[in-house]
Design a protein around this nucleic acid. Structure first.
Lengths: 203, 203
DNA sequence: CATCTATTGGACTAATTAGTCCAAACTGTT
DNA sequence: AACAGTTTGGACTAATTAGTCCAATAGATG
């Protein structure tokens, strides 16, 4: 049978494979990651790949989860308490700073996978949706808290605000990636911030 | 030599190949489109592919351009005169309606290619950037006109507003695609609209 | 130690891939 | 009809791909 490692050694092997696969997907895209690449980078044998993963798709889906973990991890504390304007500003600034550092390369590691996999593999699409949901939940929770403390107008809908903000983030990252210009994300986030502050309900 | 067809017949062949390639990229992703797929769908021989295109990458880049044409074309008149609130609302409504019709599938044909190609092929990245720029230019032009006619506040920056709006569109489409829920785009566009109306300058 | 399971090596298959090349067929021009 | 350039057919190469299978080894457990 495949899948869950029973020993510590097995767990380490699985981890090694998964880590290498995630790197390769980030470097060469999901379609560009080959099992031979993974083997070359880890020294693992074919048997090991198929011992810990059903098949290629299973590995890719695991990569999505591990990539989500990494994205949330890199945002660290910032994302944990998004319940004040100052915290949100710090978070936005960090997102932009990260893109400046990377010179606009790479886009969103999760969002990029959407275009690559959403229409090709239903399981992958769900995994990506889950990843984005985990992300969005942090913001939504923060906004709920802010509303409770009267920092948001009374008829504001934290869920919708969180969604609109995520859209600005993803779109801003996409434009940043394609144009190699972090200012694109800055502009999108400034607009997202204004929308959060927005006082009047529309539509 | 390759490239430009000299006769009408040649032009038709090139067009047939390009059309099939664009369909296949839309269906199976850029990496999933194989030259044999194109051959099968068009009945073209290998020589024909390499007669009209340098290589696979050249074909993909041509697909990007033709896809951009199609995206702008489908938005037809709506996109030509985005110089009133009513026109913008009609445009947004049409974008959402289109996603409802497609049940949230597919995302943005251009934006999806970004995640697939931006980091793998510099030429493709440029082509995508050009495509998005052509799109954004329509909105920017409309906003410039609105500002001239006093429909936008005096210190509004049409270029930045257009960029922020494009980010909302792309992000909204990405969320719609991943979640199979056109309401995601609706929410993003409502926020974009509010931002366009925005009176106060921030930052 | 004996045994059972987890882990690993690696040969092998079968299919698909992009790209090259040469000769044939077609088309318009003189 | 003869010629020149364009277009086409398709065999061929060389590389890469995911996946299967069997036997060997390592490690834990009684």
């Amino acid at each position: 049978m495949t899948r869950a490692p029973a020993t510590e050694k097995g767990r380490a092997t699985r981890e090694r494979i998964l880590q290498a696969a995630a790197e390769l997907v980030a470097e060469k895209g999901a379609a560009g990651m080959s099992l031979d690449d993974v083997r070359a980078r880890t020294g693992a044998s074919r048997s090991q790949l198929y011992h810990y993963f059903e098949d290629r798709n299973d590995l890719v889906r695991a990569v999505i989860d591990v990539t989500t973990d990494a994205v949330l991890d890199v945002q660290g504390d910032l994302i944990g308490r998004l319940d004040s304007w100052a915290a949100i500003d710090r978070w936005f600034d960090a997102l932009v700073a990260f893109q400046v550092e990377r010179q606009g390369r790479g886009g969103c590691p999760i969002g990029s996978l959407a275009g690559q996999l959403a229409e090709q593999d239903a399981g992958a699409r769900i995994a990506i949706a889950n990843g984005l949901e985990r992300w969005e939940a942090h913001l939504r929770d923060g906004l709920v808290g802010m509303k409770a403390r009267g920092k948001l107008r009374k008829d504001a809908d934290p869920a919708e605000l969180a969604t609109a903000t995520m859209a600005s983030i993803q779109g801003g990252l996409l434009l940043t990636q394609v144009r190699r210009d972090p200012a694109q994300l800055r502009i999108a986030l400034d607009a997202a911030r204004a929308n959060l502050h927005q006082k009047g309900k529309r539509r």
